[in-house]
Simulated scan of single mutants.
Amino acid sequence: MSTYAVFLRGINVGGVNIKMADLREAVSTLPLENVSTVLASGNIVCTSDAGPDEVKTLVEGCLRMHFGYEAWVVVLTVSRVKELAAACPYPADSKELHAYITLSSDPEVLDELYQLAGGQDNQDQVRLGAEATAWQVTVGETLDSQISKLSNKPKYKRATTTRNLRTLHKVIAAAE
């Protein structure tokens, strides 16, 4: 049995509002165990005998059926989330800068997004692995950042989601 972190894309922003109790109740109908939600930004921790691709398919279908929106999620083992958070070179808590990790279910989509946002030439962005990039931005400028604008394009929405590094630490803590 594996412990997974499931990161939902685009809930409680842009008109898709889901209460965490309703999300937990809906996802609990799936063949997943120990389902819990973390914060109101669409983070689920659960255990399952299923692989990550099957968990992704199950959760996306559940969200579409129960909440009626085009749902996309990124599913990683919690152990992988720990590795990614530990590899992030940026501080989680800074008064001047926010640290983010963009997660992806499609490495090719993330490759393209990474390159469009400046790739290795962008000193505020680091590739952490096939499924993640880390980036930092001045407080108050997140939505105006190049990577934020790019990742909101339909082409990238289906395969990526971004979380503040502090949120990843909370997801990891919830799984322990």
Rank of each mutant, 00 (worst) to 15 (best):
E108T: 09
A132C: 14
E176H: 13
S28T: 03
G42M: 08
L103A: 04
P107H: 10
V59S: 08
A132H: 09
A130Q: 12
V16N: 02
A117T: 08
I11H: 03
K170I: 04
R24L: 02
A159R: 09
L39Y: 01
T47C: 15
L58K: 05
V139C: 02
Y69K: 11
L39N: 10
N164E: 06
W135P: 00
T102S: 05
I11P: 11
L116W: 07
K155M: 11
M1W: 00
E112T: 13
E112V: 06
K82N: 13
K95D: 15
V13P: 12
T160D: 08
Q120T: 04
C62H: 11
G51S: 05
T29M: 06
Q123Y: 09
A21K: 01
Q146K: 15
V27L: 02
D144W: 03
I18W: 04
G14T: 04
V73H: 04
Y4Q: 01
G68N: 15
A5V: 14
V171N: 00
L116D: 10
K153E: 07
N17S: 13
K155Q: 12
G14Q: 00
V13D: 08
S94A: 14
L76R: 15
Y114S: 06
A174N: 08
T3A: 10
A21P: 06
A99I: 04
Y114H: 12
Q123R: 14
R166H: 00
A175E: 05
S104A: 14
P89T: 11
A117V: 10
T142C: 09
S145D: 06
G51P: 02
G119N: 10
L113I: 04
G140H: 07
M65Q: 13
V73G: 00
Q146E: 15
S105A: 13
G51W: 03
D144N: 09
M20E: 02
S104M: 10
H66F: 05
V35W: 11
N12R: 09
A130Y: 00
R24Q: 01
T138Y: 13
A50W: 12
T57A: 00
G61K: 11
S2L: 07
A159Y: 13
Q123C: 13
N12S: 09
K153V: 06
H169V: 01
E131D: 12
V38N: 08
G10Q: 07
I172A: 02
D121K: 15
L110T: 12
A26W: 00
W135V: 03
T161K: 09
N122K: 13
S48C: 04
G118V: 12
G129V: 07
P154N: 06
A71R: 00
L76V: 12
V55Q: 09
L39D: 06
E54D: 06
T138I: 08
T77Y: 10
L110N: 02
V16C: 05
V81Y: 05
T3H: 10
N17L: 12
E141G: 01
V75I: 04
K82G: 12
T3F: 05
E131Q: 10
Y90D: 10
H169Y: 15
A21D: 08
L84V: 08
A132P: 14
V109H: 07
D111L: 11
D124W: 10
V27M: 00
G42Y: 01
V73L: 01
A85F: 05
S41Y: 11
I147T: 08
M20Y: 07
N152S: 09
E25H: 04
S105W: 06
L103E: 01
I147R: 02
L30V: 12
S41Q: 07
G140S: 00
